[in-house]
Design a protein around this nucleic acid. Structure first.
Lengths: 212, 212
DNA sequence: TAGCATGGATTGTTCAACAAGAATAGATCT
DNA sequence: AGATCTATTCTTGTTGAACAATCCATGCTA
């Protein structure tokens, strides 16, 4: 494995784990020391993360963990609606991605029963990644992955607690059922409604947290 | 303006101008000398372009100009269909982006009459960027811009001549008219057909050029 | 208090060096 | 000749130190 690529992965892991909080400044000197790499190598990784939207880079002011505000959240959900719904609506029957969706829903049910809400959250992301995989487009999946990662930062920022995802397990189930047994259009409509509710919940958390 | 950001722009310009041909290897030493920057600074720019899909980076083998093959082209058009059609179908009436679309079509007509095919190509890109701007989503526009830039490399690779865009000026006009006067669904359908024909033309050029 | 110098810290960029992997050419063997 | 191994060479990966450019906080001045 490439050193730099592994560095990007390490940084990404800590970002989505919340160890590097949204808005936190990432000092080149400090992080270089912590990860035991040179400043130049670290800066290359920063450029990658910057393009992915996980960090902001302001010239001469350094990089900081992306800290999505409400308009960012709205924008992210706009992207989700366009991509996820369009993919689902145009998805073929019997796509292998459907099996991934099924596994994610099933696992989420089990995890919810076991009160393992962290796992529920992870499987929720798997479900939506599986939806986009129905497009058979690697580029769409990459862009979508970046957006989901950014949304994860939004959750962290306002501390959307994992167990709040509980109601959405059943919603995913309904989307899957509609895709399998009804029409793609119906499934896409259910998914759109899901995304609307999810967005409202996140924006509500922002309002409670008094964040822009 | 930031030095590095300007370097990315310079490199992008030369890429889409075709001065750096698809598949060409980009030697760090040579390019650093040419742009009068250090290898380290150049490498930072490479990481940005890599995330944008304009260059490929293989560890220990350096970076080369992206050279989309037929499956890349197919993937790119998949993305275009999902994004452009979904945006257009869900676009509100009276969005300011419609005025941009109109200007692009009008200008393309004039440029075509003047045999200025390079300008026709540029305005064609403006038109489709304007379509995506109907989404009011900066992230969607950014991702879409990257994909269009990559498609530009595909054109360059098989030398899709600019005047081949001629029939598409009228198609854009029809899409615009449908959006303005008919239904978003109808406009999206027309755009989808447009994209199908455009994709076929590019793939045809690939077949003639004997490229994968 | 508002505005302005000043010093300290951080980022931007370069350079030279070396390690590590890949590619090339040459030598060897069958 | 053709294939395979090997040594050399080239390129990339990474580092550390250095300096310039810019920002930021502090305290001074009016």
């Amino acid at each position: 494995m490439n050193h730099e690529s592994s560095l990007v992965n390490q940084l990404t892991d800590r970002l989505i784990a919340g160890e590097l909080r949204p808005g936190a400044r990432l000092s080149e000197a400090a992080l270089a020391k912590e990860f035991d790499v040179s400043r130049n190598t670290l800066r290359e990784a920063f450029r990658v993360l910057g393009e992915q939207g996980l960090v902001n880079h302001i010239p001469h002011r350094g990089v900081s963990v992306a800290s999505p505000n409400t308009s960012d959240v709205i924008d992210i959900y706009r992207v989700r609606r366009h991509i996820e719904c369009s993919v689902l609506e145009n998805a073929p029957k019997n796509h292998p991605g459907a099996e991934e969706m099924r596994r994610a829903v099933e696992g989420a049910h089990a995890a919810a029963a076991a009160d393992d809400w962290l796992r529920v959250g992870t499987l929720n992301m798997s479900f939506h990644n599986a939806v986009v995989s129905l497009s058979d487009s690697s580029r769409l999946m990459r862009s979508f992955g970046n957006v989901l990662a950014e949304l994860r930062l939004a959750f962290l920022k306002v501390e959307v607690l994992d167990f709040l995802h509980a109601p959405f397990v059943e919603r995913n189930q309904e989307v899957l059922d509609a895709y399998l047994n009804e029409s793609p259009r119906g499934a896409a409509a259910k998914l759109g409604a899901y995304l609307g509710d999810s967005e409202r919940q996140v924006l509500g958390a922002y309002a409670r947290a008094g964040q822009a």
